[in-house]
Amino acid sequence: MASTASPTIRARRLRRELRRLRAQQGLTVDEVARSVGWHRAKVIRIEQGHSGVSSDGLRKLLDLYEASPDERDALASLARQARQKGWWSAYGDVLPDDYVGFEAEAAAISTFQSLYVPGLLQTEEYARAIIHAGRTTANKEEVDRVIAARQARKVLLTRDVPPKLWIILDEAAVRRAVGGAKVMRAQLARIVEACQLSTVEVQVLPFAAGAHASMGGAFTILDYAEAALDPTIVYVDNDTNTLLLEEEQQVSRYRLVFDHLRAKALDPDQSADFLVRVSAELQD
């Protein structure tokens, strides 16, 4: 399947460029707001991605920023693309944040998961067990929609140029028999199968490795083909919310953490053997 441009990424490019043009003119948020007749909160919401910008609003900003004709054309195109709908918009009720939109155009996905197998490699039965455990009041229709959304995400791995997927799994995620022994054996087999793909690497971080650099929990690093336009993003997950980190210092810290985890984990071949052994040990 061919890769498609992500509206989420285009919206991020647009707001980054608007911040750059404002800084280039030496204008503060308050000065922009006064010049275009907006409340300063509107300027902040647009620059932080909490609000879109209309065609007329974009024109006002570009006039104020003295944008060149090429810049105007490029940003108008970005704004049009940002207003389009990605496939994930149909699942807005079960995909509450922008992660999938950022994931959709990633050239590389590097993730550490401490408690469960990441969604891109989950079997349907494993996913259902996870969802039922976390959404104790969910009805069948809601669960089915979450499953459908997760299945749609997996198309990412079969596009013409799939992202490089590097997963480090804590042994706890491998040992926990989610859904029972039969479901977990099938899930482990799915991971081993994915390891055969040239674009997928899986490492297991064993209990024997002791303390490590990400004891606080899971995170994902998203890298993009055009790094100058789309700098790396880090997502940090916990039970209550998801943090998006973009500052260079924050990204560098998590990249260093991931490198430390890779060094402590079993290598990919050893990890595949480990998964096979764990599967054989599961008792019905």
Rank of each mutant, 00 (worst) to 15 (best):
A2F: 05
S3P: 00
S3H: 09
S3W: 02
T4H: 14
A5R: 14
T8D: 04
I9S: 12
I9P: 02
L14F: 05
T28I: 01
A33H: 04
A33K: 05
V36K: 02
W38Y: 10
R40V: 09
G49R: 01
G52P: 07
G57A: 08
G57N: 08
L58S: 09
L58Y: 10
R59C: 02
R59S: 11
K60P: 00
L61M: 06
L61P: 02
D63R: 09
L64E: 06
Y65C: 03
Y65D: 05
E66K: 13
A67M: 06
A74R: 13
A74D: 09
G86T: 09
W87N: 07
W88C: 05
Y91Q: 09
G92T: 11
D93W: 03
V94Q: 10
V100S: 08
E105S: 13
A106K: 03
A107W: 02
Y116I: 14
Y116F: 14
Y126C: 03
A127D: 05
R128W: 01
H132N: 11
A133H: 12
R135L: 14
T136I: 13
T137A: 12
E142D: 11
D144W: 01
D144C: 00
I147Q: 08
A148G: 09
R150D: 08
Q151R: 14
A152F: 04
D160A: 14
D160K: 12
V161L: 03
V161M: 01
L165P: 09
W166M: 05
I167A: 12
L169S: 08
L169Y: 07
D170N: 13
E171F: 08
V174F: 02
G180D: 04
A181Y: 07
V183S: 03
R185E: 11
A189E: 13
A189Q: 10
A189R: 12
Q196P: 00
V204N: 10
F207L: 14
A208W: 02
A209E: 08
G210H: 06
M215C: 04
A218E: 07
D223F: 03
D223L: 00
A225E: 15
A225M: 05
A228V: 12
D230G: 08
P231G: 03
I233D: 12
V234M: 12
D237N: 06
T242L: 12
L243Y: 11
E246P: 08
E247L: 10
E248P: 12
Y254F: 15
R255Q: 15
R255M: 11
L256S: 15
D259W: 00
L261F: 01
L261W: 01
A265V: 04
D267W: 07
P268H: 02
A272D: 02
A272S: 13
A272G: 05
D273A: 15
F274S: 01
E281Q: 14
D284C: 07
